[in-house]
């Protein structure tokens, strides 16, 4: 079973990289840009056919290593 995990900085954590990307897009003429937050993306394949169990495994991966819960939020999606 395959999942995607998206990791983003929490709302109140400064994201200087996102800011620079945003400024650059404005500089090259992109209009109507409101805001950008940069994050990380993982594709994870789990050897488990039961959805809930598989999700639990991925959630454990997030909490144990992939995400720093002090500053980051994450979303798990089945793909």
């Amino acid at each position: 079973m395959k999942f995607s995990v998206t990791v983003t900085l929490k709302k109140d954590v400064l994201d200087p990289q996102g800011k620079v990307v945003q400024n650059t897009l404005v500089n090259i003429g992109i209009k109507n840009l409101k805001s950008i937050r940069q994050g990380k993306y993982f594709e994870i394949e789990v050897d488990e056919s039961e959805l809930l169990t598989a999700e639990k495994i991925v959630d454990k991966m997030c909490k144990k290593l992939l995400v720093n819960l002090v500053i980051e939020d994450y979303k798990i999606n089945k793909i």
């Binding site: 954590v13 400064l14 200087p16 990289q17 620079v20 720093n68 002090v70 500053i71």
Partner: peptide, 16 residues
């Protein structure tokens, strides 16, 4: 900080 022995974390420098 990653082991949890100290709380908090170190973010990227503000000026990148």
């Amino acid at each position: 900080t990653e082991t949890g022995l100290l709380k908090g974390t170190l973010l990227r420098n503000k000026n990148l």
